[in-house]
Design a protein around this nucleic acid. Sequence first.
DNA 1: TACAAAAAATGAACAATGTTCAAAAATAAA
DNA 2: TTTATTTTTGAACATTGTTCATTTTTTGTA
Lengths: 205, 205
Amino acid sequence: MSVANRKAKEKEALKALILKGAKRLFIEKGIEQTTIRNIADEIDYSVGTVYVYFKDKNAILHDLHSIGFQELGGYFEELFSIEDPMERLRKMGFTYIKFALENQEMYDLMFNLKAPMEFLESSEEGGWNEGLVTFNSVKTTVQQCIEKGHFKGHNMEPLSFMVWSLVHGMCCLEIRQRTKGLKFTNPDTILLDGYNEYLKIIDRL
Amino acid sequence: MSVANRKAKEKEALKALILKGAKRLFIEKGIEQTTIRNIADEIDYSVGTVYVYFKDKNAILHDLHSIGFQELGGYFEELFSIEDPMERLRKMGFTYIKFALENQEMYDLMFNLKAPMEFLESSEEGGWNEGLVTFNSVKTTVQQCIEKGHFKGHNMEPLSFMVWSLVHGMCCLEIRQRTKGLKFTNPDTILLDGYNEYLKIIDRL
DNA sequence: TACAAAAAATGAACAATGTTCAAAAATAAA
DNA sequence: TTTATTTTTGAACATTGTTCATTTTTTGTA
């Protein structure tokens, strides 16, 4: 059994190597500018080998999208030590924006590109688990806010979706160059300025 | 002069024909699935001809993105007869969502795809005029709300950006399949339910 | 009308991409 | 050592955006 065992580990290692190389190139020169040949070159394997370990490009992009969610989880970790749900909700949005701006290509992959979702559709997996888990962080926190007497007259799930949309929308516009295309009074701080307006609002609810 | 004149008009007509064919295919089978050869076939011209009238694919996508903004302008038209700025702001968001859902490929092109912005960067045009005009509709309305005593303690531009991000974020998540990937309690109405939470909030400001 | 010049349209050809698969190389089992 | 299995390879294919020398059409002139 030890040989088969080692082989299995080697397979996993190579898979991880491919993902690591792909991620490096994605961040370095953009996802669209990265080809399978580039990835193969980067890790000194042939094109064919990549296709032994991944069904197609979508599979690579999906696995990398999952890694992105792990990393987002790392950013979120410190949030769960915050007792006050309102304070946690405030910081959560800020952390989300921080992650998006510091990991633009990964964020794009996680929340914008079609590839990961196309992979899900063509696979037997139940649904978008990564998104579900992240959205649950928001929902749970909003629920606790409600239980503490905030957000009177609001519904938990739609309100959570609204909050998520708000931060996602800002990140999206920024990453897809729709803020650079415009000319804001304070172009460098428009995301945080916008988020601050939101903070002012929920502080009163 | 009449010949040169007619020629110029014919050139414009063919350009428009190409754009019309492209748009039809985009809506029918998606932007990513549409090739220049497809477009040429659709209008019974050769590939080369398309390149006589457009520098590259980005140029087509940019022009089509501008057409999208004209269409969005059509949706917005009735808004300007609404006197009360708060009421106008409410309806504006709703109209925006309606446009996005009824014209998903076009919306994607206008607010998500990189092509139109890449075209702008490689051209001598000043900036993203289409986006500027649309965002001005929001800003003007928010400004009028402020002048009427609403949104006390808020700043016009960041607040407008926040509002835009909120609706854009919802549309974006929907169009890029991040709501289908999740499982909402009411999947079919999550956008409107989310928007309603927003309405409840601003009604109090 | 006939014919040369200009303009417009063409499609074969190129480089780059994702993908496949028979063959080669490396490893394991006997 | 020899055979069987696994892993790796890279040439080949279809499809893409793009170019450009050539052909076709239109215009201007005698």
